[in-house]
């Protein structure tokens, strides 16, 4: 952002929701580089997929730090992906009424799955 004049700082608008969402995408994205790629490497490269059975999950979730890792990945990926989907909906669904209903469905669905996933991680065992 480039502004000129002596009072440029005071004329700079207060960050809006969209500014924060832009910033959040960058920060969460950089954190997800580690969380998501490490998660994929553990479950598909270091171990073969068929090895990541219920026993494997039980052993990992025995350690609360892995539960924290998995929950952080769940929360950040969902929020990051949901915000990205919101941008895409705004681009492609042009009628205000349809835009509202599409978003209502997507938010409800993601919200329910977020609660369900959180419930699974927290209450397992």
């Amino acid at each position: 952002m480039r502004t000129t004049g002596p009072d440029a700082r005071s004329r700079r608008p207060r960050p809006s929701f969209e500014t924060w969402s832009w910033f959040f995408m960058r920060v969460s994205g950089l954190v997800l580089v580690f969380l998501a790629l490490l998660h994929f490497a553990i479950t598909h490269i270091v171990n073969d997929v068929v090895e990541t059975d219920a026993t494997f999950v039980a052993e990992r979730w025995d350690n609360p730090l892995w539960r924290l890792f998995d929950w952080t990945l769940l929360a950040l990926a969902l929020l990051h992906g949901l915000n990205g989907l919101r941008w895409s909906i705004d681009d492609y669904v042009r009628s205000p009424a349809r835009r509202t209903s599409v978003k209502a469905v997507v938010y409800t669905f993601s919200g329910v799955l977020f609660a369900y996933g959180t419930f699974s991680i927290v209450t397992y065992g």
Partner: peptide
């Protein structure tokens, strides 16, 4: 955009299949 939406859709499915363990 396409890669982001695809990974997001998989994430939704993945929550359901992992939660079966409970």
């Amino acid at each position: 955009r396409i890669s982001g939406v695809l990974v997001f859709l998989f994430l939704l499915l993945h929550i359901v299949d992992v939660s079966l363990i409970n």
